[in-house]
Amino acid sequence: MELVSLFITSFIVNNIIFMQFLGTCPFLGVSKQIDTAAGMGIAVIFVITLASVITYIIHYAILVSLGLEYLQTIVFILIIAALVQFVEMFLKKSAPGLYQALGIFLPLITTNCAVLGVAINNIIYEYTFVESLVYSVGISSGFLLAIVLFAGVRDKVDYADLPESLKGSAISLITAGLMSVAFLGFSGLQL
């Protein structure tokens, strides 16, 4: 039961984009079409889940046992970057179909703060291994939800008769802000 509430909390209540403001770069960059937004979201789920598992193991197996917790950030960045590279190569060879779908998004995620943020949060909140797994799946599903919703809204906004000065990024930022305010409504939810 606690795991379910952890999932929902990380999925909606503490939505990574609308509540924690992490990963806003791909959120604004790759949300012009619903298809590509969904592709990006799935790639993020994939990478975040994998990265938090590996970083969790590295953190407790190497850093804690050597008393080097303060190296967390730099080591995690190193591992995430290498991991994404590896995943890209692996997919290219063994699952060309999946690579075609995720291919261009994978390198974009390499230095994404959302990935690093989840990995570090897992440590800060002192989650167990299973909890951190649920947390990272929840958070990254929240990213998928946010980017797909946002792409849908942008699709409609494209047809609106906007003043010249609001076109493009301006209206996107306003839209994102309004959606964030809407998600604020979940923050009182007690699970």
């Binding site: 190497i62 050597l66 730099i74 080591v75 190193l78 591992i79 290219k92 060879k93």
Partner: peptide, 27 residues
């Protein structure tokens, strides 16, 4: 020294693994 060794070590291991992977998954 310990910090440099650990960071460098992890970097080196990642590098070697990637190099092996590049050969292994070469297309």
């Amino acid at each position: 020294v310990k910090a440099v060794a650990v960071t460098g070590g992890i970097g080196a291991v990642c590098g070697v693994l990637l190099a092996i992977a590049a050969k292994l998954f070469h297309i």
